[in-house]
Design a protein around this nucleic acid. Structure first.
Lengths: 338, 338
DNA sequence: TTGTAGGCGTTATCAC
DNA sequence: GTGATAACGCCTACAA
């Protein structure tokens, strides 16, 4: 015993048995007499012995930590997802280590290397491009779950919202309200959720013969403040404005609305807005976003479930869970009148 | 080499040198000829060898992971703090492991035990009671930084906003606006930030001879939805209402305002509100909270700095950083008129 | 059922 | 300057 902490040898010695016996007893393995097991467990309980996780991990070949790589924990959508996943995995004895890629591929690759180096037990990748790291993913040889990442050739577990459909739905809704000129604010290029939504938007435009105007397309990093500054550009630099905008996530939309109002634009009278995520805040009076929900609870449950499944049984057939988005109509969209 | 990964022995063997030499070379330790060192580093670079962190940790006695225990990562204030701290510590080669105590002391104690068991390099504790875990803290013998936790007898590093003053300031502001009946929404009992604010509020009430009414005191878990449900109670169950409320954090305040408006109360005409944190969202039109800023950027920088200081030099004299809160006046407070 | 011994991948302490 | 060797704390064949 050093450092105030007991080691398995201490326990063994105190009981006059071998380390193996103690190990078996505390791990619930067979091969120990019931009587002796109880004696071991009692002492362990009494002195408060806890096995050293590092040593366990070295021996077992991996840590019971799951890496979770996402864009930015400050985005409430990610925070919700993380919280839920973490809670479930914790309950099953796993820790979760969160990494903010800040939507930077290089940083993401760094984190993937760290995942290897640390021998994490598993890896959850949320909402970013997968192509650039596909090779690495294949060679990692640990449980992996992809969330909201599209990668056609990827065989492993993944759970995703049908983001193409979500983008399409947004346009459909605006179309029913007679809008003809519809702009789009994309997310970071690395985000496949964003790309899919954009594709859905373009497809809908095309299917219904609406014009696509490159000038009506902007890019955000999903942050509130970016929404605000984009609004400045939108109001001041555009000679002709669309009557509606589809915005890649709620936080950008909230910022964008703020910037628009700041510049005298009324919403929805002068501009209709549809966004994505249905974050808590979007329901609040004074915001009341019309948005497309991703069902974050279900997403996190499926993600955690798939991870646990792989963790328990390395060889199981991959699942691909696809969740349907839902339109939530509130007060940022209205009928377009000439 | 197994599992597609090289070990230090592989590297040693490939070069025909000993493991010790390789270890010294990659760790920049003295005792290797420059020539040989270069040869080692070149090979390491070429084959992409990375030392196994678990083994390193076992040998060194701790992981280069810092545990960060907070209430709930979905609270934007915590998310901001976490993001910043994580970014700085990452830059210095440390990982951060986040734990959501959900404001539950038992859970917090669990996490403290895990911190020991995992041999984490350090511990950052954010905004919760410290008394109940003080003993454990003392016996942990690793770098610890307390954030927004008051513990008079605690000698170690800590950074905190003067929350007593913040609570006092909130009342002062309302007093200048002629309010006489001022209520309060507390945070979870475990949160010392909340307790301090409440104490400041009471002190100000007393100093200026204002009445304190137990009926005007509510409790929140800092979540938006809780703010909403508290508003129901506030509007429906109170026979006489205060003209102003001080609310423990922005998110609760946002929810509370929503619930009030839902029930026909106008803000600030019928009710003034002051809250704490100055989260991004509080500046948005349609919200525009009058709030007391905690200067989250400075907080996180100091926190990370203190942790790194301890990590580098176990024996250094403790610092206590105290940040002054700042009142940000927006549109949820107005002059009280009879 | 129990104990012994070797191994997990590093680092650190000795010799040489 | 370099190389054996022990140690970190645990798990797990294998032997008794």
């Amino acid at each position: 015993m050093k450092n105030g902490k007991y080691s398995i040898s201490d326990v063994a010695e105190m009981l006059g048995v071998s380390k193996s016996t103690v190990s078996r007893a505390i791990n619930g393995n067979s091969g120990v007499g019931e009587e002796l097991r109880k004696k071991v467990l009692d002492l362990v309980e009494e002195i408060g012995y806890k096995p050293n996780t590092i040593a366990q991990s070295l021996s077992r070949g991996h840590m019971n930590i799951v890496a979770l790589i996402l864009g930015d924990i400050r985005n409430p959508f990610y925070a919700d997802l993380t919280f839920n996943i973490q809670r479930i995995l914790n309950k099953h004895g796993y820790m979760v280590m969160v990494f903010n890629s800040e939507y930077d591929v290089r940083r993401e690759i760094e984190f993937l290397k760290l995942t290897l180096q640390f021998n994490f037990a598993g890896l959850i990748l949320i909402t970013a491009q997968a192509e650039s790291v596909e090779g690495m993913l294949h060679s990692m040889n640990i449980p992996i779950v992809l969330v909201n990442r599209i990668l056609p050739s990827y065989e492993g577990d993944s759970v995703l919202t049908d983001n193409f459909r979500a983008g399409y739905m947004a346009v459909m809704h605006l179309l029913e309200l007679k809008h003809k000129h519809i702009g789009f604010i994309k997310g970071p290029g690395i985000s496949s959720a964003s790309t899919q939504r954009f594709d859905g938007y373009r497809q809908a435009l095309q299917n219904f013969g609406l014009p696509f105007n490159e000038e009506y397309v902007f890019a955000s990093d999903l942050k509130l403040e970016t929404g605000i500054s984009l609004a400045q550009k939108f109001v001041k630099e555009l000679k002709e404005r669309p009557s509606a905008m589809v915005i890649v996530n709620d936080m950008t939309a909230v910022g964008f609305m703020d910037g628009c109002k700041e510049n005298g634009l009324r919403i929805p009278e002068d501009l209709s807005i549809v966004s994505f995520d249905n974050v808590d805040i979007s329901a609040i009076k004074g915001i009341e976003l019309t948005t497309i929900s991703q069902h974050v609870d279900e997403m996190s449950e499926h993600t955690a479930r798939l991870m646990l499944k792989q963790l328990k049984n390395k060889e199981c057939k991959p699942e691909r869970v696809i969740l349907e988005p839902t339109l939530v109509v509130r007060n940022t969209t209205s009928l377009y009148e000439e």
